[in-house]
């Protein structure tokens, strides 16, 4: 798997995770470039179907970044996300897909370092898991 570079889609909430990613940039913190960010207002907007579509369309993993519990800009959106991801991971696992490929992380707007670290960890984990798709698969 040495040459394997995982493909990742990262759904980031605008107020915390995406702002944290911006801060990582402002601080020039380098992290693996594998994830394409898609910014949404709240992690609560993220639908399980988007996550699965990403996996089907060629992603090896999907990251969902939201606000820490208690910090959601919309008060309770991240709690819904947490439960959806919890259940989605159960379904994926039962299908035979490693649930670790779907990751929910709380990253605040001040945690640029944490964002970079989460990215690095996730990409490392996906490299360890190996590709979800055959070479030349979708995407």
């Amino acid at each position: 798997m040495s040459g394997f570079e995982p493909r990742v889609v990262a759904f980031l909430c605008r107020w915390c995770a995406a702002a944290g990613a911006d801060l990582a940039g402002t601080n020039r913190l380098q992290y693996p470039p594998h994830a394409i960010p898609i910014r949404v207002n709240c992690s609560g907007r993220v639908e399980p179907q988007w996550v699965v579509e990403a996996l089907k369309a060629g992603a090896d993993g999907v990251l969902i970044g939201g606000c820490h519990p208690g910090d959601c800009h919309y008060v309770v959106g991240n709690y819904k996300t947490r439960r959806r991801v919890y259940l989605l991971r159960k379904v994926l696992e039962e299908m035979g897909i490693e649930p670790e490929r779907v990751r929910l992380e709380w990253v605040s707007a001040t945690e640029g370092g944490r964002f970079a670290q989460v990215m690095a960890e996730f990409v490392a984990e996906l490299k360890r898991l190996g590709p979800l798709h055959e070479p030349g698969g979708p995407g």
């Binding site: 609560g44 907007r45 639908e47 988007w50 309770v76 959106g77 819904k80």
Partner: peptide, 23 residues
């Protein structure tokens, strides 16, 4: 926030300019 949109099972609730098909 769009939390209701993600919760709506039938797809009747949508989000302006962040439609499911768009995403």
């Amino acid at each position: 926030c769009g939390t209701c949109v993600a919760a709506c099972p039938s797809g009747a609730m949508t989000f302006r300019n962040v439609e499911d098909e768009q995403v």
